[in-house]
Design a protein around this nucleic acid. Sequence first.
DNA 1: ATAAAGTTTCAGTAATTTCTGAAACTTCAA
DNA 2: TTGAAGTTTCAGAAATTACTGAAACTTTAT
Lengths: 189, 189
Amino acid sequence: MISKMKMTPLITSAVMHFGEMGSRWGFNRTVGQMLALIVLNEEPVTAQEIADALNISRGNVSMGLKELQSWRLVKPHLVPGERKDYFVPAGSVWELANRVFEERRKREIDPTLSLLRDLLLDTPANSNEAQAQQTLSEIHDLLESVTAWSQELQNLGPDKLNTLMKLGSGVGRMLDLKDKLLPGKSTVN
Amino acid sequence: MISKMKMTPLITSAVMHFGEMGSRWGFNRTVGQMLALIVLNEEPVTAQEIADALNISRGNVSMGLKELQSWRLVKPHLVPGERKDYFVPAGSVWELANRVFEERRKREIDPTLSLLRDLLLDTPANSNEAQAQQTLSEIHDLLESVTAWSQELQNLGPDKLNTLMKLGSGVGRMLDLKDKLLPGKSTVN
DNA sequence: ATAAAGTTTCAGTAATTTCTGAAACTTCAA
DNA sequence: TTGAAGTTTCAGAAATTACTGAAACTTTAT
């Protein structure tokens, strides 16, 4: 049976673009295309439909789905009387974006933080190395702040985070007022 | 003349690691190594020293330096009586991190925003497409918010941004108080 | 138990990305 | 104006990453 999926020009452009961007976002072309396809289809799609629509091998689709699941971007959708697996997005657009962000932080920052912690334990062998260690420690502190903050933002939840983002330049004004409002919290490092 | 540069084990580990992470951060292995080398050396380094220290071809170094300059992460350092170019970091660790962030936003978000704007101008051909367009518009709005916000954060400047990051869970409390403080700003979307 | 309908794995191949090295170019001192 | 000391460019080679397709595997209906 031929795929039910409709690849209109609009959807095709979007899928192709997500493919192009895929590698910049942390996955490869076909994985990006697959994600777009699943997200843009209201109905759940099967692996075979994806292979047909994108003209790629069944094996490739299987690996791509595995990866998308490891990123928690798509999930299987069990259909009662059916044998095959259907796939759907693993949440709202907002949730998916969050997962990508979080997953990338894990892959891009955590390993470096861990290495830096180790390197900072060594005793510098000479002044050159002492200076390098100083720089590494600045990098470490920066990455640690970013990590802690991103955690903090996650904890806020979608609604508050949205409020914060929509605040715009109000953020600056709020910070000016902050000391009066939360006197218990010191600002100094 | 042999390179003056000292590749101690500590610096070597850091350089190697930055090489490994390079591709995840948006550039390739040798470019990542070069960046680390330049950032971790207090003295300015020459292209030839980089080639020697990393054991890569002179041509590769030239291209890598060009890329690092296009990211505004390193800059030439003119030494009066000298013919050759020396290179130094183009700012503090904080500034460099900002530039990487900003540059990546440009490469990873802007092209998609631009495509989405175009796609949203089309009239949907059927209900399926209308639904897809709805999703695309959610993605568009999200990316636009992120872009605007990142701009906002840049405008805050290093000190306020640091204050904000160090605020931790205080951010949540501040948002609770927000309406009383800035009554002019509506929260509704 | 069997076989039909589906999925996963993985060795080999294809495509892409990165790197080399030699030639072309630039700059400056004599 | 020549040549020495340096840089850049880019075609092809090497390395890496992604994809295919066939075989192995799983699940379920009969």
